[in-house]
Simulated scan of single mutants.
Amino acid sequence: MATSSIITSPKNMSTAILIRVDQSGQGDYTKIQDAINSVPSNNSELVFIWVKPGTYREKLVVPADKPFITLSGTEASDTIITWNDGGEEGSESPTVNILASDFVGRYLTIQNKYGKSGKGVALRVSGDKAAFYGCRILSYQDTLLDDSGRHYYKNCYIEGATDFVFGNGASLFERCHLHSISEGNGAITAQKRESPLKNTGYVFLGCKITGIGGAILGRPWGSYSRVIYALTYMSGVVQPEGWNDWGDETKQKTVYYGEYKCYGPGAKRDKRAKWSHNLTNEEAAPFLNKTMIGGRSWLRAAPTQFNKTSN
């Protein structure tokens, strides 16, 4: 997938400019958005925004012209970004909007408290090459708009009731915990791939699925929707049929929904939708590493040296 503009990469990937956000006034800024705003347009240096513990009631945007930003807490449980917005236009509601490429989010809780009234996106990721580590992403309907680009989520907790991972990203979720709070039969994913030529889709590798009611693994927002669960624990919250065609039987012939060596009471395949796939070793192989997202070329280690901002 091509990015919309030419990005100049930092020359030194181990050193970052450090910006501190602290509500007590002991940092460079007291608001996260002010710290983001301080990064120059067409940024070509690593910027590490360290958010001290607290509850930040902000609606954040990382603009497309500000790549190479890391937004990091220390623990997700005590560094909380929260807002309350929603409605039918899910793209308007996100608490956190990532429009830039080469973004990293670490150890944050990102929350939309809109509740059961409609779509309330907590996190929208529309930039290419974005990675999230140890984050908690919380809402009810449409929690994570994994919109477009290549993305990597590791050790994240994602909670919702309806279509709570949705969009048309090419994304790998590794060792993540998906928790359904649907009291009925909610869908975990609604992936929007609309052409067999597009390399998009969601892969859940070594994940865990829990919940309080019933849940299906996915339904097709796009005709060529693609979702794979591999080596994933499925609790009894996963319904026996597993997958749903969203009322359009023609999509049964075009979607690609697969499972590979999943386990737990919800992983039994005897009553699964007949048009879903029980993948062989060979079929699963392309989805068991970072190849689909090209991760080896862009995933980066956290910086080890910091230069303080001049502010």
Rank of each mutant, 00 (worst) to 15 (best):
Glu45His: 03
Gly206His: 03
Ala187Asp: 08
Asp270Ala: 15
Gly90His: 04
Ile188Pro: 02
Glu75His: 10
Tyr140Met: 09
Thr189Val: 11
Gly115Trp: 07
Asp248Arg: 11
Tyr140Val: 15
Gly201Tyr: 01
Pro286Gly: 09
Glu159His: 00
Val39Ser: 07
Ala187Tyr: 06
Tyr152Glu: 03
Ile158His: 04
Val237Ser: 06
Gly54Leu: 10
Asn307Thr: 12
Gly87Thr: 05
Lys253Thr: 08
Gly134Arg: 04
Asp146Asn: 15
Val227Leu: 10
Ser44Tyr: 01
Glu88Val: 10
Glu75Ser: 15
Ser148Gly: 03
Ser44Phe: 02
Asp142Ala: 14
Ser93His: 00
Asn42Gly: 05
Asn97Thr: 03
Pro303Phe: 09
Lys129Asp: 04
Ile98Arg: 03
Val104Arg: 12
Ser223Glu: 12
Ile19Lys: 11
Lys116His: 01
Lys119Pro: 00
Asp163Leu: 14
Arg272Leu: 14
Gly90Ala: 13
Tyr257Ile: 05
Leu60Lys: 01
Pro240Asp: 10
Ile98Lys: 03
Trp50Pro: 00
Tyr233His: 12
Trp246Phe: 13
Leu144Thr: 00
Lys52Phe: 13
Gly86Met: 07
Tyr260Asp: 09
Asn112Glu: 05
Pro63Lys: 01
Ser4Asn: 11
Asn289Thr: 07
Ser41Arg: 08
Thr232Phe: 09
Tyr229Ser: 08
Lys271Leu: 15
Thr30Arg: 12
Asp245Met: 02
Val39Gln: 04
Trp243Asn: 01
Asn97Lys: 13
Phe48Glu: 05
Gly206Glu: 08
Leu231Trp: 02
Ile32Ser: 06
Gln23Leu: 11
Arg272His: 12
Phe287Leu: 10
Lys198Asp: 15
Met234Arg: 02
Cys156Lys: 01
Leu46Met: 14
Tyr260Gln: 06
Ser180Ile: 06
Leu138Gln: 06
Val39Ala: 09
Ile188Cys: 11
Gly27Gln: 07
Trp83Gln: 06
Ile69Val: 13
Ser14Gly: 02
Pro265Leu: 14
Leu60Phe: 01
Glu282Phe: 00
Asp270Gln: 14
Gly247Gln: 01
Phe48Val: 04
Ala285Gly: 04
Glu183Leu: 14
Ala64Ser: 14
Val125Phe: 07
Gly214Cys: 11
Thr3Cys: 11
Asp128Thr: 00
Asp248Ser: 12
Ile69Phe: 05
Arg175Ala: 13
Tyr29His: 10
Val255Tyr: 05
Cys176Ala: 07
Pro265Arg: 08
Ile110Pro: 00
Phe204Thr: 06
Pro240Thr: 03
Phe306Thr: 06
Thr291Lys: 15
Ser93Ile: 05
